[in-house]
């Protein structure tokens, strides 16, 4: 059971783009299994005729006029970036050399 869950956990961590150490994998799979077991409690309730609620407000789409406004200065936007080059965010190469 635990071994199965470690597989699930690895898959989920990959989806979440999180690198986990082996110790973390072991700890989390144990803890999450316990937590998810506890959460099974929700299955006691019959919700077949209940609408889901994602939000408490009676608001749906909130519209505004499409006006042109001033944007934040580029310098401010880039100020907290860990690596920049030529006024752009820098990332590892994602296209192959031709």
């Amino acid at each position: 059971m635990i071994r199965n869950f470690i597989q699930q956990l690895r898959k989920t961590a990959h989806l979440a783009r999180l690198n986990l150490t082996e110790e973390e994998e072991e700890l989390y799979s144990k803890q999450l299994e316990e937590i998810l077991n506890y959460f099974q409690k929700l299955q006691e309730l019959d919700t077949s005729n209940v609408e889901p609620m994602a939000h408490v407000l009676p608001l749906n789409n909130v519209w505004r006029e499409d006006e042109i406004k001033e944007s934040m200065e580029k310098e401010l936007i880039l100020k907290n970036a860990p690596e920049i080059e030529n006024n752009c965010f820098k990332v590892p190469k994602i296209v192959k050399n031709i």
Binding site: L45, E51, M53
Partner: peptide, 15 residues
């Protein structure tokens, strides 16, 4: 369905 959706339905009941 079993987790997130179920929880949002129970949220309706709590409200």
């Amino acid at each position: 369905d079993a987790y997130y959706l179920k929880a949002t339905k129970v949220r309706t009941l709590i409200r």
